[in-house]
Design a protein around this nucleic acid. Structure first.
Lengths: 211, 211
DNA sequence: GAGCATACCTACTCGTGCGTAAGGTTACGC
DNA sequence: GCGTAACCTTACGCACGAGTAGGTATGCTC
């Protein structure tokens, strides 16, 4: 017979990627808990036990998604924002890379940003990634400040960086929901908010209550 | 007998509030799916069918939490930022109210912000709330701009407002994870990022690529 | 073309937790 | 003091989905 071997046998590495692709799609569509392993398997064009054989439990599968998408994103950003540029140029390239990534991997972003926040086991994983980003941004600010002979407390720096990262994430979210929007333009808008504020801070301008 | 009527019978309105209190606690501790109706009922000092009788299904219960906490927050903010003040003063008071609320209702905030993002049914509810906030902020910016004889596209305005709201949410999240942090000080920090950037925009200063 | 490893499947078990049926008890009106 | 309505309980049905047992096919090596 061998009538319709409709789907060919494939080596492990390939199938794993297909499964991860499917998992990202389904997780982003349904959320972690509402996603069923059956649906993921079906979407990947494979049967459920294969998923367990290759990627382990549902949690492990989700963490694998998180890792792959997170690594891709960090690499995209790190590759764009070379450390020997001026602060504004680094920020600009980093933002452009970030929004480019979100625009190109909307569901990957949705998994990362929306799903992983709530449930305990993944929040830590995600927080670690965010922390790296925050550290990079804070480092940029600190570097730029020192170059101007200024100094700011570590907490202040961290919090400002946190706010900038949060604003970017939020705009990333907005972008994911507006398929017609242009990532490049979104990056420019973010830059307008972030850099103009940061630039003022770098100049030593600050705001305080009752003034 | 009537030995130990340990817990008294209470009118519906009171029990409903107790249930909502418990639900917020449990949802924030466990997340939506991991939270069980049994645990919520136990935490409220009542049995499960009562929860169903009063608040309906698990989803409806969660939405009820969302509504109550969201309304409280919006009222806190709206009450603080009177519309006849200057833009910076309004922003400042709004931020102070916001971070004050987060500091005082850490678990309520966690429910609102972290759990509701992922799963479909609630994302809309939350998005609607955020949209109201964004609209308020955008309105503030627009008002301030017109007062200076300037005009900006509606989308630009919305996106900037979105970024500011996102940054605030993100710092709110940071605050919820840092019990030792002072809400007032956090608000000041946020103001430094937001207002200095916004102020520049209001003056007509903009940033654009390759400059 | 025998042997073996690896890809792959169908068809199940079993825990968990939402939602409910059916009945007990307390307060309050009359 | 007695009905009745609201409050509250225990104890269950039932669906859904994670994870697995055990078996089949395919290709690769010698």
């Amino acid at each position: 017979m061998s009538s319709t071997p409709t789907f060919k046998r494939l080596p492990r590495a390939v199938r794993e990627q297909q499964m991860l692709d499917a998992a990202v799609r389904v997780f982003s569509r349904r959320g972690f808990h509402a996603a069923s392993m059956d649906e993921i398997a079906e979407d990947a064009g494979i049967s459920k036990p294969m998923v367990y054989a290759y990627l382990g439990s549902k949690e492990e599968l989700f963490v694998a998604c998180l890792h792959r998408e997170g690594t891709r994103m960090m690499e995209a950003i790190a590759g764009a924002a070379a450390p020997d540029l001026d602060a504004d140029e680094r920020l600009w390239r980093g933002l452009r890379a970030f929004f480019g990534f979100v625009g190109a991997h909307r569901d990957g972003w949705a998994v990362l940003y929306r799903q992983a926040r709530g449930s305990q086991p993944f929040a830590g994983e995600l927080a670690a990634m965010r922390a790296r980003l925050v550290e990079v941004v804070a480092g940029m600010l600190d570097h730029a400040l020192r170059a101007r002979g200024r100094e700011v407390g570590a907490t202040d720096l961290e919090v400002v960086a946190y706010a900038l990262v949060g604003a970017s994430e939020s705009l990333g979210d907005w972008l994911a929901d507006h398929p017609e929007a242009d990532p490049e333009k979104t990056a420019t808008r973010m830059m307008n908010v972030a850099w103009l504020g940061a630039d003022q801070l770098l100049r030593g301008v600050t705001w305080h209550p009752e003034g």
